[in-house]
């Protein structure tokens, strides 16, 4: 890499870091200024709503299979349903994800064997 590319890489890295760190510092100062007993009360309400919405948006985006096909969509639908059912039963974090991936992979493999 030449020196110009190094500068571009560092600018991207520093810019990305600042976008993650500076808003946190701003909010921490905001919370101190408000000096609320409960920090959540001092948070702008739109921000507390936006957090779960960002996760839902990431969920929607990540549902699209890397190789789009009818079988992959079917595996996604079954895998998602099974993940939710296992969560309902176990109320845990790891098991639903593990079983979901196994079922998703199983459907993909079965579809490949059948095809």
């Amino acid at each position: 890499m030449d020196s110009e590319l190094w500068i571009a890489l560092l600018a991207t890295a520093i810019g990305t870091f600042l976008m993650r760190a500076l808003p946190l510092l701003w909010m921490q100062r905001h919370l101190v200024r408000k000096q609320a007993g409960n920090s959540l009360d001092a948070m702008p309400s739109w921000l507390t709503v936006l957090g779960p919405l960002m996760i839902a948006a990431m969920f929607g985006v990540s549902l699209v299979p890397s190789k789009v096909s009818t079988q992959a969509w079917l595996a996604t639908a079954i895998g998602t349903l099974v993940t939710y059912l296992v969560w309902k039963r176990t109320n845990s974090l790891g098991w639903p994800v593990f079983v979901g991936v196994v079922v998703y992979g199983g459907v993909i493999l079965l579809a490949n064997v059948a095809a």
């Binding site: 779960p52 996760i55 990540s62 890397s66 895998g79 994800v97 979901g100 991936v101 998703y104």
Partner: peptide, 19 residues
């Protein structure tokens, strides 16, 4: 197939976090 199957862990995790 590994690269096709393993990334399903991400939507599964997001779903569990939202559930």
């Amino acid at each position: 197939l590994l690269g096709e199957i393993m990334p399903f862990a991400l939507p599964a995790l997001f779903l569990v976090l939202l559930a």
